[in-house]
Design a protein around this nucleic acid. Structure first.
Lengths: 258, 258
DNA sequence: CAGTGGTCTAGACCACCCT
DNA sequence: GGGTGGTCTAGACCACTGG
């Protein structure tokens, strides 16, 4: 019995793949499939034609057809289930993800970036940051507080702590104001093997508001970070304070391009 | 000239790939490469052996070696540059991404979920939500406000607006309290082709705090959504109010598993 | 059992980068 | 020109699902 499943029909009276095109075959096929979903011809929940069927119908090898389906899978549009098939996803909030691309955009505009040190000191009294860094309450930590300015306007406030170990390159790096870009980008200095980030909603206190030229009490993002060195020891703890206007957290799901 | 580049040496006195293992060859090779990075043997910025070299050295085909490298690329550990090579990334904040998995976790626990309608009405006066939905100021919209409870504790407050079009299935769906899960999951009802999500920091007002059993003025997340139907018309606008304790926004970068 | 996705081969050619 | 990643083939076998 053929077509026992509900399989989108457009794949029979099909568009062709132009092998002379500069667009790779897998991308062309991905576009065709995405279009079928977008037009509602392959509605959510429905099964796509099998990869071998796609390969035969569109005259490509199975690996190529598979690659095309992988594109849609990475876009979150379909879900593969081994032994059953590939199914069109219903869009849902839980498939969304937010990135910090807007931060990256600003920080890659290095010509318009500057850094102002607000505070730099060695702290010997106990504090939460020492627990986070795995230090004893009497071990000294270095605290550095900076305002990062973009086009001469305050962009974000960064507070960071590292253990005061004079043999560690992290210390020197911390005091180098430009290490900041190392935390943000891939092209800077970086001693770190891994990191943990956490985003909170927060409110500006008087002092921070003044530094950022914003209103006290305003809702802002607090982005905490804890980076570990290659010995798996926590090495840099701190946070960024930044307004949601400067760092919009946006996520798009489903099909936007056509 | 061999080894003109700085290429991590462990790939010469190499570990083997066990083809009888249940773990696929590409995954084994990915683990080996990840381990090299993790141990600092392939430090950030350094070039990995070429895919063809990996294939030869580890006795797999080029496609398999390529797949192994793709794993690391998706993990954000390496960056491929055509014509140049594959390079170990320095970790940076901008590579991180946050997902709403914690929301999904709670919402998939359907047995312990319940919904309480706080407010449901048709609004005919002008308002921002009508602009967002592309409606005229006098066209009616349906507003539904619900508390979603998890284990009988308030979890999030959801406010949503849809145009009051009696022919649209969205209306019925909106009034069905269970449509909510459709927005969260892939297995629910869904009329939507795409959606736009935006996360804000916010503060609880008196009323919402009471509904959520939290303190007024507390910092919380506001998650706005705008979903479009398959005719590309905005169809559902609204937001969730949820505390960061209930919806932690966490992101890990670099190498955590070993 | 047949059908599906998942892995894998042993090559090939291309586009790109650098020298 | 030689090396790199990017695409592609025409198959193969495996693991899993369902009837």
């Amino acid at each position: 019995m053929i077509n026992d499943f509900n399989i989108a029909q457009p794949h029979t009276d099909r568009k062709k793949i132009d092998k002379r095109s500069r667009l790779p075959a897998y991308a062309q096929l991905a576009n065709i499939l995405r279009s079928c979903i977008s037009q509602g011809e392959s509605p959510p929940g429905e099964r796509l034609p099998s990869e071998s069927a796609l390969a035969k119908n569109y005259g490509v090898s199975s690996m190529t057809a598979r690659q095309a389906v992988s594109v849609l899978e990475e876009e979150g549009l379909v879900r593969r289930i081994q032994g059953k098939g590939t199914f069109v996803r219903k869009i849902g909030i839980s498939t969304s993800s937010f990135d910090l691309g807007s931060l990256g955009t600003v920080f890659s505009d290095k010509e318009n970036l500057s850094v102002r040190i607000v505070n730099a000191s060695v702290k010997r009294s106990p504090g939460l940051e020492k627990e986070v860094l795995g230090l004893g309450p009497s071990q000294p930590v270095i605290m550095v507080e900076r305002i990062i300015l973009h086009r001469n306007e305050p962009f974000t406030l960064h507070v960071s702590y590292t253990s005061f170990d004079p043999t560690s390159p992290t210390v020197e790096a911390m005091l180098d104001t430009m290490v900041l870009t190392g935390l943000i980008f891939q092209d800077g200095y970086s001693n770190f093997k891994r990191g943990d980030l956490r985003l909170f909603p927060s409110q500006l206190n008087e002092r921070d508001a003044g530094l950022l030229k914003l209103e006290p009490g305003q809702s802002v993002f607090k982005l905490e970070h804890l980076f570990y060195d290659f010995e798996n020891k926590p090495a840099a703890y701190g946070w960024f304070i930044v307004s949601h206007e400067k760092m919009p957290m946006i996520s798009r799901i489903g099909i936007w391009d056509e």
